Computed example of a mutant assay.
Amino acid sequence: MKLSTKKVLSVLAVLSAGMFFLAGCGGASIGSKSSNNTKVTKKAKKDVKVGMSLSTLSNPFFVNLKQGVDQVAKENGTKVQTFDAQNDSAKQNNQISDLVTKKVDVIIVNPVDSDAIVPAVKKANNAGIPVIACDRGSNGGKLLTTVASDNVLAGKMAGQYLEKLVGKNAKVAELEGTPGADAAVQRGKGFEKEIKGNLDLVTKQSANFDRAKGLSTMQNILQAHNDIKGVFAQNDEMALGAVKAVKDADIKIVSIDGTPDGLAAVKKGSIDGIVAQEPKQEGKLALQAAYDYYAGKTIDKNIKSPIHLVTSKTAK
């Protein structure tokens, strides 16, 4: 009886191990279907079909980004289908689903929200379509690359310049961008780390990267904190709204972006400084990354776009 039991247990152990092995093999084969493991079929630039979804075309920064993509596409005979997500994450995910259905060769996306975009990125991954994030990243899924300026550094530079303008321990406010947007998170991180122990951040409120909301939010801030000496706006649009709210008060304003309207305001003196990005260059770099991918080249995980501080003395 004891021998029989041992035999039974031995047979069960073998069967169990075999089932585990088969299950493991099955998992490996499913994983091997990932598009990142397949060999790239080379394509000429004119044959690369591009789909692009931008968070909003109401913001001049992203209009300029689109112009960068369009310029390079025109030079190379590339067809680009562009969608405006109108700051709506659900709409943007639907747009990317549409591009997946249309079987484009690459998707360039500027996410409304870095968390909300994840399912759409994964859907493109499953379809074997490379995804390039521009200006803002994705917090999940697999990206071919993220093309953006160093937002943490930009926030730090803005903080350093605001410190220089308002002096040690001055009270300041921060206008934050769209909640969840990677650029907003990183810019805020860089700014707040820099000013800790140097400036008194009395409040930070979201104005959703929008000029009109920048105005109304800044008005509310001034009602509660009429003794602030400086404002950090995470983009030019909010800074331009803040300018209207501040009017003639001696409050220094520093932002990040480098849009035509923002740079004109620096030249005029209504915005004191901008850590300027190059949105057209970001667009050009994004499309070039797509070309390089279909040329069989290795793509860097992150492609940095240049930034520099613009003041009234250096504005052109």
Rank of each mutant, 00 (worst) to 15 (best):
A120Y: 08
A120Q: 10
V121C: 05
K122Y: 07
K122I: 03
K122E: 14
K123R: 14
K123Q: 15
A124T: 01
A124K: 04
N126D: 14
A127H: 11
A127R: 07
I129C: 08
P130K: 04
P130T: 03
P130V: 02
V131C: 12
V131Q: 05
I132V: 14
G137M: 06
G141D: 06
G141S: 05
K142F: 02
K142L: 00
L143N: 04
L144V: 04
T145I: 04
T146M: 07
S149C: 14
S149D: 06
N151I: 07
L153V: 05
L153C: 03
A154E: 07
A154I: 02
G155M: 01
K156F: 01
A158Y: 01
Q160G: 07
Y161N: 14
L162V: 02
L162A: 07
L162E: 00
K164A: 09
K164E: 15
L165W: 11
L165K: 15
G167L: 07
K168H: 11
N169L: 01
A170V: 00
K171P: 00
K171H: 02
K171V: 02
V172T: 07
V172I: 15
A173M: 10
E174Q: 15
E174D: 04
E176C: 08
G177R: 09
T178F: 13
T178R: 07
T178C: 03
P179T: 11
P179L: 08
G180H: 10
G180C: 04
A181I: 06
A183W: 00
Q186H: 09
Q186V: 00
Q186R: 12
R187K: 11
G188K: 05
F191T: 01
F191A: 00
E192L: 13
E192T: 12
E192W: 00
E194H: 01
E194R: 04
K196E: 13
K196F: 02
N198A: 13
N198Q: 14
N198Y: 13
L199T: 10
L201Y: 10
V202A: 11
V202S: 11
T203L: 07
K204C: 05
